[in-house]
C-alpha cells in the first residue's frame, strides 16, 4: 500500500511502541553488556573502567572454566545426540504409523511443561532414598548401583545432562513439518525400484532435510544447550564442587553478588561462544553436503 501523507502520523503511532520496546529490551541491553563487561561496578557506587581485566579474572576462575566446558558438552550432546534421535523419530512418525498423532502429542509434552517443573520432577526421580530411579533399580535387583545421583561428584553432571536427551518432541515436530513437504513421487519411484524404507530414509529424506530443518534443529539445540539455567539451578545449583555449573548459572551468581562487571563479561563470552557455534555448524553442514554429493556421483559412476 502506498503511504499517504495523512497516514504518516498514525503509522509512527502504531510502529512506535514496538520499536521503543525493541530498542530498550534488545538493542540497548546487548550494547550494555559489552560496555559493562569492561567495568568494575556493583550497581551503586561509581563504575571504574577496568579494560579487559574482567575477562582475565574470568578465565582464571576454575568455576567459570568448568561452566564453559559443561556448556560446550551440553551443546554438543544436544546437537549431535538429541537431534539425531529426534530425526529418527521424525522419519518414523512421518510415515504415519498407527497412533502417530497420539505419540506426537505425548513426545511434545516436555516442551510445554516449564523447565522448572520438569527439574522438580527429575529431582524427585533422582532422589537417593525416595526416587523412582533407585526404586526401579532396587526392584530389579540392582540395588547396589543405586546412589545419590545428584550428590556424587562423578554422577551429578551426567545425571543433569542425560534426562532431557530423550525429550525429542520439539525438534521432531520441526523436522516432521519439513518432511511432509517432500514430494511423494521420490518415494514412489524409490519403492518401484525396490528401495526399503531404511534406504529411502538414508538416500531421500535425510539429504533433503539436511540443509533446512536438520540444520535449524542442530543450531537451535546447541544454542539452547549454551543457555541452560533452570535445570542446573533447580537440580544441583551448580554443585557438587561446581561440577554442574553453567555459564548462565555462573552469571546469575555473580549478579546476586552485585558483581555486574564479571556477570556482563560472562554474558559476552556466552554470546560469542553462541555465535561461534552457529558459524561452525553452518560450515560443517555445507562441507558435509558437498561430500555426500561426491559420494553419490561416485556411486553413479560405478553403476
Amino acid at each position: 500500500m502506498k503511504l499517504e501523507r495523512s497516514d504518516r502520523g498514525p503509522l509512527y503511532a502504531f510502529l512506535g511502541p514496538a520499536i521503543v520496546l525493541m530498542l530498550v529490551f534488545f538493542v540497548i541491553p546487548v550494547i550494555y553488556v559489552f560496555v559493562v563487561s569492561l567495568l568494575k561496578w556493583n550497581g551503586i557506587s561509581a563504575p571504574v573502567f577496568r579494560n579487559i581485566r574482567n575477562y582475565t579474572l574470568l578465565f582464571k576462575d576454575t568455576a567459570f572454566k568448568r561452566s564453559v566446558i559443561n556448556n560446550v558438552i551440553w551443546a554438543l550432546v544436544a546437537g549431535f545426540i538429541q537431534v539425531p534421535l529426534a530425526m529418527v523419530m521424525a522419519i518414523i512418525l512421518s510415515r504415519k504409523p498407527k497412533g502417530w498423532k497420539f505419540f506426537r502429542t505425548v513426545y511434545f509434552f516436555p516442551q510445554v511443561i516449564s523447565g522448572i517443573a520438569l527439574a522438580m520432577l527429575w529431582r524427585a526421580i533422582y532422589n537417593a532414598e525416595t526416587g523412582l530411579l533407585n526404586g526401579i533399580l532396587r526392584s530389579i535387583g540392582l540395588g547396589s548401583v543405586a546412589c545419590d545421583w545428584l550428590g556424587g561428584i562423578k554422577t551429578a553432571f551426567p545425571a543433569v545432562l542425560i534426562y532431557w536427551v530423550f525429550y525429542v518432541g520439539y525438534y521432531m515436530v520441526i523436522m516432521m513439518a519439513d518432511i511432509t513437504t517432500i514430494d511423494t513421487s521420490y518415494y514412489e519411484a524409490a519403492t518401484i525400484d525396490g528401495a526399503t524404507d531404511f534406504q529411502q530414509a538414508i538416500y531421500i529424506t535425510i539429504p533433503l532435510i539436511k540443509k533446512t530443518s536438520l540444520l535449524t534443529c542442530v543450531t537451535l539445540a546447541s544454542v539452547m544447550g549454551l543457555r541452560q539455567f533452570e535445570q542446573v539451578y533447580m537440580l544441583t545449583n551448580g554443585g557438587p564442587a561446581n561440577t554442574t555449573s553453567t555459564m548462565v548459572l555462573y552469571m546469575y551468581k555473580k549478579l546476586q553478588d552485585a558483581n555486574y562487571g564479571i556477570a556482563s563479561a560472562s554474558a559476552v563470552v556466552l554470546i560469542i561462544v553462541g555465535v561461534l557455534f552457529i558459524v561452525c555448524i553452518r560450515k560443517l553442514f555445507e562441507g558435509q553436503s558437498e561430500e555426500t554429493a561426491m559420494i553419490k556421483k561416485a556411486r553413479r559412476a560405478v553403476k
Binding site: 529490551f25 534488545f26 550494555y32
Partner: peptide, 13 residues
C-alpha cells in the same frame, strides 16, 4: 538473542 545473557541489563532497567 540469548535472553538469559541479558539478565544484568534487564535487572538494571
Amino acid at each position: 538473542v540469548p535472553l538469559n545473557a541479558l539478565m544484568v541489563p534487564y535487572f538494571v532497567i
